[in-house]
Design a protein around this nucleic acid. Sequence first.
DNA 1: AATGAATGAGTTTTCATTCAT
DNA 2: CATGAATGAAAACTCATTCAT
Lengths: 203, 203, 203, 203
Amino acid sequence: MDSNTNLSADKRAQILAGAAAVFAADGYEGASMARIALVAGVSKGTLYNHFDSKAALFTAYVGEKCDLYLAHVFDGTGHEGDPAEVLRGIGKRMMQMMLSDVGLAIYRVVIAEAAKFPDLARGFFESGPARAVGFMADWLAEETRRGRLAVPDPAFAAEQFFNLCQTRLVLRRKLEMLPDPPETDIEEVVEAAITMFLGTYRA
Amino acid sequence: MDSNTNLSADKRAQILAGAAAVFAADGYEGASMARIALVAGVSKGTLYNHFDSKAALFTAYVGEKCDLYLAHVFDGTGHEGDPAEVLRGIGKRMMQMMLSDVGLAIYRVVIAEAAKFPDLARGFFESGPARAVGFMADWLAEETRRGRLAVPDPAFAAEQFFNLCQTRLVLRRKLEMLPDPPETDIEEVVEAAITMFLGTYRA
Amino acid sequence: MDSNTNLSADKRAQILAGAAAVFAADGYEGASMARIALVAGVSKGTLYNHFDSKAALFTAYVGEKCDLYLAHVFDGTGHEGDPAEVLRGIGKRMMQMMLSDVGLAIYRVVIAEAAKFPDLARGFFESGPARAVGFMADWLAEETRRGRLAVPDPAFAAEQFFNLCQTRLVLRRKLEMLPDPPETDIEEVVEAAITMFLGTYRA
Amino acid sequence: MDSNTNLSADKRAQILAGAAAVFAADGYEGASMARIALVAGVSKGTLYNHFDSKAALFTAYVGEKCDLYLAHVFDGTGHEGDPAEVLRGIGKRMMQMMLSDVGLAIYRVVIAEAAKFPDLARGFFESGPARAVGFMADWLAEETRRGRLAVPDPAFAAEQFFNLCQTRLVLRRKLEMLPDPPETDIEEVVEAAITMFLGTYRA
DNA sequence: AATGAATGAGTTTTCATTCAT
DNA sequence: CATGAATGAAAACTCATTCAT
């Protein structure tokens, strides 16, 4: 029975992998269940044995990506040491994620379908941005207690920092004007964000 | 003869108005020509007498919005007086536009279809963000010459300011988590952006 | 008023010229009134001022071609002199017509639409094949009276001769397997037809 | 599993039967997929599960008719005995085929669409006329070797014979002027063709 | 649980025809 | 009489979903 469960879970994962490829490439409306079945290597009927509808499959796809991809951006990130160094690590990881193919694909599809799938939009927000902001806000509060920084509203400041880090690169990438942003550009932008951020919030 | 021209232009405008409503509500793929015809109050055939295809209609819709809406955000904006005051005007106008229903709808649909319509994405960028950044960068350069500010890279600084202004409100609005952002919130966020911006770039 | 009539007749001829080009290229179903209007250089409305419907325009086109093109294949053909020589002239003219672009186009379109436009099919038959057969049958009857030939059923014999002349070339041309049949091939085939024909019907 | 295969093949055959009826009645352009689905007793979707497009269905229809209908006209035809008798059998079978409803329908539609489907036209030629000519040419060559006939160019002579056999009946049938040609007419025409043919080619 | 054939409503697009100017 | 915008029915084709095997 365990093997049975595994088999079933495997099929589910197999379908989700196909769905991920197709939804990322074609968007929600542009994706067809036939194509997902083809890419996943199963029949159309099997799709419906595992997911009630196209919308349910889409929801599961986005939910999975949010859990497995966005959610772990900061897992294991140390927040000890010099504030500038910590900000550098946070900023770079965040930007690498936002500029990656997968990160971009989820963002695109969630923004496009936010009106149709509001729960998904909220789920995306909470597994991704909200989690990152929460993590960083906690750290800012601690540094403020320690006297190294002076941040009156840590959550707001965290959001400011993430917005600053997106300068120049993120919008252009979303508009397909920047196929492959180089590492050095990210570092430059993050450095400028750190300078401005500490210029305001250093104790 | 004038009436003839007006009639034709009127129909075109009528169709574009219907298209705007439907594309904004349903996105490109989600919109159907039948529904656009219904909302515009014309027959499907008339749609095709004025626009060659759905893609052409979509292109005309986005192009029009970029020209008539985004492009005029800064028309007539004075850039005299105290830097903080000028930044306040720029920031507020920009945020009002980005958070408006029309601004949001264009952003959503352009981001979603950037891969399929790269020219549109570039057109959006150039009529909207690039124009705003260019306007602000010119002003920053002038203030630097005057000795009131010290901005080494005006275009980059302008993008930083716009990103700062988006804190807290814009992403939540895109995700349908903030149906109607109040004026006071915008002012608060812009004020914080001005503080941080001048903390770095004041002479 | 005469000028008026002429103007009107000119427009009619202009429309028919456009219709001829389009029907020949695209067939009846494949032709569109919009394209005919374009090629004829008039508006769609003008088409309907001169012809009641697409079917009427088609009928007029085929009728005109039958009258002006098929009907005059034998005008001015002398039927004096050596029977072989007369047969040679008749056979060659007939084959040149059947293998020409215009002749082929009419045949194709009349055959394709014979079920839908039976009157047209009969009209085609009578202006074209029947006329040729009648002309030749008269000549065969006269030669029989003169004692140079012995043809018991002149109309039947005439049809036999035309069928013989089509050997090898006509079907292949109808099937687009012979874009441009050379003159010498026609002569060869006609010669063989004459030999066989006279082998049977010479007095 | 056999039943499965049969089910699928049955549906295909069922669709082809419907397509045959509609294409024969309306031609390629005049036929609609909706009507074919209706006549075949399946849904439009099922049509597209079995054939990629209208053109593919048409190609399959013509190909099937050429294979199953034209190709077997001469199967089992004995070519022993008196030449006149053999010619009589060949001529009658050929004419019965050309004057039949199915034979006429394929001819009509292939001629009409030869420009659009050149491969089909060639396929028609090779399964039908070319095969008949080849068969008869072989027999003529053998009779020439045996000394009963004297045919210098057997393929050309075969085509002459088939053209002669079409006298009076075939064109009129194609033009819908002869709904149902009686057997006796065919015999008469074929007899005349044999007379003329042997008048030239008898040893 | 897996399959894939069948469905029919829905999509974009074309077209013959009409009519106000 | 010429125009060309407007129409709506019909075309080819797609797709999410169901269901018998």
